[in-house]
Design a protein around this nucleic acid. Sequence first.
DNA 1: TAGATTGTTAATCGATTAACAATC
DNA 2: TAGATTGTTAATCGATTAACAATC
Lengths: 211, 211
Amino acid sequence: MKKYSKNQLQRYPIYLKYLRQLKEQGHTSVSSPLIAKELGYSEEQIRKDLQLVSNEAGRPKKGRNIDKLIETLENFLGYSSQANALLIGVGHLGNALMNYPFFEEMGIKIVAGFDSDKEKIGSLVNEKPILAMEELSRSIKEYKANIIILTVPANVAQNVTDFAVKAGARAIWNFAPIHVNVPGDVVIEDVNMASSLAVLWHRYLNLKNID
Amino acid sequence: MKKYSKNQLQRYPIYLKYLRQLKEQGHTSVSSPLIAKELGYSEEQIRKDLQLVSNEAGRPKKGRNIDKLIETLENFLGYSSQANALLIGVGHLGNALMNYPFFEEMGIKIVAGFDSDKEKIGSLVNEKPILAMEELSRSIKEYKANIIILTVPANVAQNVTDFAVKAGARAIWNFAPIHVNVPGDVVIEDVNMASSLAVLWHRYLNLKNID
DNA sequence: TAGATTGTTAATCGATTAACAATC
DNA sequence: TAGATTGTTAATCGATTAACAATC
């Protein structure tokens, strides 16, 4: 399997989104300089990235076929796989993600939510059942749920993670604002808003100070 | 002003969160190897990162004073600033962020939401008023709102961004699943779930294939 | 043909890691 | 003292950028 850096992997969905836009606008081919200009990357980087996933060469002067490229990226990113996901922690954020319309186009489908709150258990959110934590293990097997979305408070995140791993979770998408440890045979990826805000804030201060 | 890489900036909030945990547990000092082990970084990296923000040296054998370090990081990250933020797009995600309890400990406070939906305008979400887009320019001035949180659908993100920039926005925290362009005197940072998922998914596939 | 764009190979840049003397 | 941990300086590694011949 080829090696992709984290930065690289993060760029592919952005390319794909843009290519879909171009396609909607009626374009049938696309060049590296165009993508580079519009998305703010260098054209060399675009070329490198696309060469790496694509098994078909681009054509000088013309660029690449958009439909082919979209298909390539969709396959590469798993958008054609329709993997089932389970969400733990149906608070405000969990609720929002259960209603998030873009997951399906990203190839994942939240099939159930889990919470420890008895009031919530048994209810439906966006037509998906909210179940008790005890059901997790069974659900992972039943739905072949590859991905666990973690939207619990920071103070219980590690405990819930341990529980989920024991229940069979192998990929955890962590929205809790804290680092959690997992065994080597489990992958975890954080959506850390504090990290993102730190970058924004620092750049903003730089901007103000330069003026 | 010192130069910090994006990766570096992203790590600081993670350190801070962990240090706060340690403090709660009664620790008074902390060493690089300890942080490194717990958070999965190398100890050299921790040392480099902390040296860069700290104006006080650590002490061999002992490490650093936790209280001092927490204070340093809080100041560096702007957590003591209490900046006002405005949120545009009160859908499911926007709603969740208006109820997100951790923003205040990160030094930002959402003071109002904005939406184009007449049904929502005039209502309160988590005690904050939802206003019409026409009010944006006035609110930015009134609240000295440095940060705009963008939680609108992808297809209107660029238009709304342009509108916000015209209204005086200078820092945009973009949760829409799309790249938007801004002028050079505006900073933008994306929370791109698709990018995050791409990393998770790729690592997960790697894991399965290696087994 | 001329020119835009490609893919490849080399150079540069920056970030991480390693090595090690200093010190509490 | 001995040992853990520090800060600094150098080496390595990887990613991005530059250069350029190939080609549609």
